[in-house]
């Protein structure tokens, strides 16, 4: 059965694209994606450092990341009995009515 001429036209356009343009387009898109990935990785890596530098230049303190993440059991500070807890609802005498 003969194919609709509009669909034949579409197939011809697509074949022409695959033959003459597809590789160029693919290469350019790949290159753009690589550039964009490089920029986003660079920002992700260096932006925190830049922000710290800027903060220090303005007279503040750099935010230092916590190097280890102790669990509650490992955290000596949390286990000390004399650690002052935040005042809560037990300190009723101090509540100003």
């Amino acid at each position: 059965m003969k194919k609709n001429s509009f669909l034949q036209l579409r197939d011809l356009e697509m074949a022409e694209f695959v033959k003459n343009r597809q590789d160029t387009v693919r290469t350019r898109v790949e290159s753009r994606l690589r550039t964009s990935e490089f920029i986003s990785n660079t920002l992700e890596l260096f932006f925190p450092k830049m922000a710290d530098t800027f903060t220090v230049m303005m007279g503040g303190e750099a935010i230092e990341g916590q190097h280890d993440y102790p669990t509650i059991d490992e955290n000596e500070l949390a286990l000390k009995p004399d650690v002052r807890h935040l005042e809560g609802p037990e300190n009723r005498g101090e509540i100003i009515r």
Partner: peptide, 11 residues
């Protein structure tokens, strides 16, 4: 993915 759709997008 590119080769599956690029020609259709072009058309």
């Amino acid at each position: 993915l590119h080769d599956r759709y690029a020609a259709r997008i072009f058309s």
